[in-house]
Design a protein around this nucleic acid. Structure first.
Lengths: 259, 259
DNA sequence: CACTATTTGTCCGTATGTATG
DNA sequence: TCATACATACGGACAAATAGT
């Protein structure tokens, strides 16, 4: 049993408020998604796994059945359980070094679905960040971004009204960055916070994940040339389809490549 | 019943592989920790909560009992259930502008608990990243970082053996960055990916969260002066106590402040 | 002071899910 | 597949503590 180690075993705890089969399911799934168990790997027999993890064979069977139902493994009598999931470390990444440019690239390689467009009064936290009065109206836009037809990002944004270009129809075909530029508004800088959140029911539906699944959340305030905040964005990403990638240098001055 | 809304109710799903009482526990706990239910607030009666969430009173009781056992609420016959947890909105932030320096600052304001130190053969994905053979031994270190006695970060690192300074005792008192520097190894750059993961049983225990709770994960490869990878780190952060904060400029050359 | 409504504590019986051997 | 044990979840009933009338 080299495929599983003592640490994996320590991840099964009967006192936790989750069924053992589900804990085991998570352990194996993580090893497959992390590339430690690659496509074609033959897993140990149910009985061996059961002995190693100190659970019954039925518990193992249930975990492996769930993995098969989601396409991670294939199981056949006499042949055993094989990993079918193809480890693909390349997910959509947002390089931060030249972030605004890569956002434009991304917007060309993906599609956007407009869910909502409205003029509203912003919630207190948003009004504060945009430095507007609570009764002033801003433009709220909710969108989902897809790659190869699969949703991977959910955006909710509040934007200071800056013209007639950010219209309903325009948003369906153009990215907001393009529209900003056409209106003469150049984003000078952004201030953003990255964290993790659990998917609520709405997010789960729109990103096609389960309620409670972890999402990468980016809260971003964008500033124009004059340093005024013009846009407040909450972006939630499916971690299996989008990750933030960045290269950092320890030198005090970082020179970025010209484009 | 203003204290709970339809969104909260949608977070209870009988088909999820977690007990209903625990799902309800999470909903209430999150509202308390998020500051929506402040100290002194009287929660609705068990019966009312049960009706609203469409569960039995026993399920509600179990959830509230668990919260009481962890000090979030206090319960008395005839008086009801009151919130006792004091809301404190502070979170630790890691500014990326001068990231390596701020990591040193953070290490002074926080404490580290060493969980494991061993020489091991790395898993495939790690060996690949560090460009070593799968049978070569590297140093694996597992640590938890605490702020004010509360854990907020969990680190698992694999490091190429670079001397005798990275010893068990030294790691208890010094940060790895300091030890690297003492050994003459200067981190030139880091390559890191931010994503979100669900807490497994081990992480949940060490960070004092629930299994499945979202965590911010940073996978970081550190390179020395000569561009060779020397360290592979997986850091998992409690999103309520640590968030990544960064300011980005759209100019091609970014000048960072000297220190 | 009693009376009452409210709220939590405790117990029962039952059904289903989980886990073992 | 079966028998067994325990946890979960339900509805119901009653007791005990509290607060207000």
């Amino acid at each position: 049993m080299r495929l599983f180690n003592a640490e994996d075993r320590a991840n099964l705890r009967p006192d936790q408020p989750a069924p053992l089969y589900h804990q085991l399911y998570l352990v194996v799934k993580r090893k497959i998604e992390g590339g430690d168990l690659r496509q074609g790997t033959l897993l140990p027999a149910e009985k061996d796994i059961a002995v190693f993890f100190n659970v019954s064979r039925i518990t193992v069977k249930r975990a492996l059945d769930d993995l098969e139902a989601e396409g991670y493994v294939s199981r056949h009598r006499g042949r055993g359980t094989h990993v079918t999931y193809k480890y693909e470390p390349k997910v959509l990444r947002a390089p931060l070094n030249n972030m605004l440019d890569s956002l434009r690239v991304m917007s060309r390689e993906t599609q956007v679905r407009l869910i909502e467009f409205a003029r509203v009064t912003p919630p207190p936290a948003v009004a504060e960040a945009l430095r507007v009065e609570a009764d002033q109206t801003v433009e709220r836009v909710v969108r989902v971004r897809l790659s190869e037809g699969l949703p991977f990002a959910h955006y909710t944004s509040w934007t200071i009204p800056i013209g007639t270009g950010m219209e309903h129809e325009a948003l369906k075909t153009h990215s907001r960055l393009d529209l900003f530029r056409k209106l003469g508004v150049h984003l000078q800088s952004v201030d953003q916070v990255l964290t993790a959140v659990a998917a609520d029911t709405t997010l789960a539906q729109r990103l096609v994940v389960r309620v409670g699944d972890p999402l990468l959340q980016v809260t971003r305030i964008a500033f124009d040339q004059r340093g005024r905040p013009i846009d407040f964005l909450i972006a939630c990403y499916r971690p299996d389809r989008f990750q933030y990638h960045m290269k950092l240098s320890s030198s005090d001055v970082l020179v970025r490549g010209k484009r």
